[in-house]
Design a protein around this nucleic acid. Structure first.
Lengths: 233, 233
DNA sequence: GCATGTGAAGTTGTATGCAATGTCTTGACG
DNA sequence: CGTCAAGACATTGCATACAACTTCACATGC
């Protein structure tokens, strides 16, 4: 980070969820988001405030705040006086997101690599290893999504401009609920993990151009693996 | 648009503010945002919930929703148990946003032009004329920002992918509060208005490539006019 | 004089009650 | 039998009250 909020004490609430791997976020927002990410709340499902409030064990007020924030982030659709429902990602939506990411994220990576601390690289490496472990165990694709979001989030947060970071987060977030990893083939998963490892290597070498190239490869491969042909431009 | 929300009846509340020119948005969100855009609430100023509630004439509840949304959009900073303050855009922040926009918005424009209806083009033309009128009268730069946001918003909303639109809106929004037009020279303002007129012409001709080129020119010129040298890459 | 602890004031976080709006069922009428 | 209207139900929007936390001032001890 650059300008504001460098002390750990006054971390804004949204950083707590955006940062690294959310070790079970206890906030209403975090819980609702986790339900969406896990598929417990399916696409198109209505989110009733009282239902969620009862399930999470708080009143409607924090639930409403969570829904508003999720709506601002594009994870739920709000209709006035009718309620919120989980967004439904069409194939075109997902393809569009990959288009945007392929244009921006490599750039962000090149900007961020020079700013990475040794700790950042260590965390990237850790996340990469943990993701490989999940894949090796044939495990939990949604957990993998969370780790993946944390991995990519590190680059985005360190890109040197907080507003650019915010905008890029807006592009990244929907990926959490799109369940793209579930569509991956075994080979595509393995390739994706290799890209992560190579990104760690490039980051460790502080080679922004290398990292940028790998990231572009990574995203274009992902667009294919998610089951979408390259969109005509 | 593709999947959800094609009927006009159930338009989500945030569309009301994002759409076209907000003819004085009466929602708490709209009012607070207008205060920020007008400079009535300066950068760095603390936003006290009770103060805003009294001034706008509602209770704290809708104020809190507004602040949460503005925080998600990156227009205010939230600190838990401390409150919200208007973001302070550094020169680097603005430059970074122009970098991002120069990368994406031309692309979005090329995608959107084929989708534009005659009504869309007419509205673009109307906005362009109104902006020229403001400049000719030497008038209100913040009003100009609003018109400009509406102008660019039309292209973004019609780009064919709602999530791409959301992401680009995230990049655009800060421009409203950065008061960039105030820094423009007379010549830069005039040039900017010419770009708008040419964008209308390209849109009217449904020539996406032309529009894309003009938009790239427009943004790069704006980056300069806002007082920033091209950022080193 | 400086650091530290304690208290009060102010502000945000949450819960709850009520009004307004939307939806669905049920009944009557053509 | 189909259509429409009216009312009951469910849900959201807003206001208010209280609890928790932060911050600032002031006094106290070193």
């Amino acid at each position: 980070m650059s300008t504001v909020n460098s002390t750990p004490s006054d971390a804004p609430s949204r950083d707590a969820a955006a940062r690294a791997v959310p070790d079970r976020d206890v906030s209403a927002y975090g819980q609702v988001r986790a339900m969406i990410a896990s598929g417990e709340l399916a696409a198109g499902a209505w989110l009733r405030e009282t239902t969620l409030a009862d399930r999470i064990g708080v009143s409607r007020t924090p639930i409403r705040e969570a829904l508003n924030r999720l709506a601002a982030e594009g994870l739920v659709d709000l209709s006035r006086n009718k309620g919120a429902q989980v967004v439904d990602f069409s194939t075109e939506d997902v393809a569009g997101l990959y288009d945007v990411r392929s244009g921006f994220e490599p750039h962000a990576v090149r900007l961020s690599v020079p700013h990475l601390t040794d700790d950042d690289v260590a965390e990237l490496a850790s996340l990469s290893v943990r993701m490989e472990a999940v894949v090796a165990n044939g495990g939990d694709m949604d957990g993998l999504s969370a780790l993946n979001a944390a991995f990519h989030g590190i680059f985005i947060e360190r890109c040197g401009n907080r507003h650019v970071a915010t905008a890029l987060q807006a592009v990244m977030r929907p990926a959490v609920v799109a369940h793209t990893f579930r569509k991956y083939s075994e080979a595509a998963l393995r390739r994706s993990m290799q890209h992560h490892a190579e990104l760690v290597a490039a980051a460790d070498a502080r080679d922004g151009e290398w990292a940028e190239a790998v990231m572009r490869t990574h995203i274009l491969a992902a667009r294919n693996a998610a089951g979408d042909a390259p969109s005509p431009r």
